[in-house]
Design a protein around this nucleic acid. Sequence first.
DNA 1: ATGGTCGATATTCGA
Length: 261
Amino acid sequence: MKLATWNINSVRLRLPLLLRFAAEYLPDIICLQETKCPDEFFPATKLRAAGYTHQAIWGQKSYNGVAILSRVPLTDIQTYARCGKQDCRHLSAHLPGGAALHNIYIPAGGYEADPIGNPKFQHKLDFVDELAAWWPQQTAGAKILVGDLNIAPLEHDVWDSKKMQNVVSHTPIEREKFLAMQNSIDWIDSAREFTPHDQKLYSWWSYRATDWDAANKGRRLDHIWVTPDLKSSLRGAHTPRDLRAWPQPSDHVPVILQIQD
DNA sequence: ATGGTCGATATTCGA
């Protein structure tokens, strides 16, 4: 089974790219973030025609929005309002076999890495704290966490870790809280099971770069974690960089995990 | 050191 996560930055604008991605990479399940689309306008019919007959969608006007598109049945679909807000950022479903799939869009956190002067940064830290406390309270059983987590935790998840110390997404407090959430139930960072920690690995390149490809100042913001009971089923993970060069791209590319059924 | 670009929506906000 191929499982993909992708911050698509408008599902309506990028529907042609989504269909091309589905046709070329054949993912069985696609988890989207930043769909920016109220549910009544979601292109459900066209995606059903492409084989994604099982869908869980949770969108809102203009911002946020998450969705799970699947070729296999989804059950027990749930949404979660976090940090006292109504943001559409966390959606889950159970897969055949029983694993719980959580699709999460962590707040980006604004520009200034100061929780007092910048409420968006505080919201981001609170969101991670809330999740870290929440996972141990859930029933045992196989779990998969995917999404745009908006944090690049490791030294080689960014182009220059020292220069990124004060840049939101790679600050010490974010990295610390991120690892605390990861350790809350022994989550496994699946992409790093297949790419050594001393090799650069990115899933996002800013729109603002003059030449994103040549500069290659990327960050690994998008993640797929699994619980230890799934570790022996992992078969490969990759981040198809070529999508960043497709016409009218998202600033994120998908992360794909292959799991033995 | 600065500003650079997107998308949705409305002429600004969030990324």
